[in-house]
């Protein structure tokens, strides 16, 4: 089918339904159909990492996945990172990014947060080099990465956070 199809996605613990052609990327579907615009598009060819979201707990480039492919999986976006998905509280990573001035224009920030989240899930006490290597798939044009790396290390030094769901 090239025409629009119904697509049901589980995002941040909530079920959403929309319609889109099979060619619509997960990133576009999240942004345009579900109005979850925290996921950004910086290159649309899988190189910048701004569109990084979690699928079944693992990071994926949402520009390299069609929305139809994400059905039946458990998705998480930056909007769901804070505890209980609320607007008030911040996840320890978000707090550390704030405290350490790890963001400037903010455009790449959601992707970095999701990547760093997966890193700390799989490696709760990374070294600086491990953080730099892990985050090398996320591009930032403002910060020179230094404070992002500092923030991830600072968040890693804190007690284990509650997961997003």
């Amino acid at each position: 089918m090239t025409g629009a199809v119904d697509i049901t996605l589980l995002v941040n613990g909530k079920t959403y339904t929309g319609r889109a052609e099979p060619r619509v990327t997960l990133a576009d579907f999240l942004r345009d159909e579900l109005r979850l615009t925290g996921t950004h598009l910086g290159c649309e060819h899988g190189a910048c990492g701004a569109c990084t979201v979690l699928m079944d707990g693992r990071t994926v480039r949402s520009c390299l996945l069609f929305a139809v492919q994400a059905q039946g999986h458990d998705l998480a976006t930056v909007e769901g990172l804070a505890p209980a998905g609320g607007a008030e509280g911040l996840h320890p990573l978000q707090e550390a990014f704030h405290r350490m001035h790890a963001l400037q224009c903010g455009f790449c920030t959601p992707g970095f947060l999701m990547s760093a989240y997966e890193l700390l899930q799989s490696n709760p006490r990374p070294t600086e080099e491990e953080v730099r290597t892990w985050l090398s798939g996320n591009l930032c044009r403002c910060t020179g990465y230094q404070n992002i790396v500092e923030a991830v290390l600072a968040a890693a030094a804190e007690p284990e956070p509650e997961a997003h769901q």
Partner: peptide, 12 residues
């Protein structure tokens, strides 16, 4: 300005 950027509420 950080709060909105960190929670996906920035408006580009």
């Amino acid at each position: 300005e950080d709060g909105r950027f960190l929670t996906g509420r920035g408006r580009y």
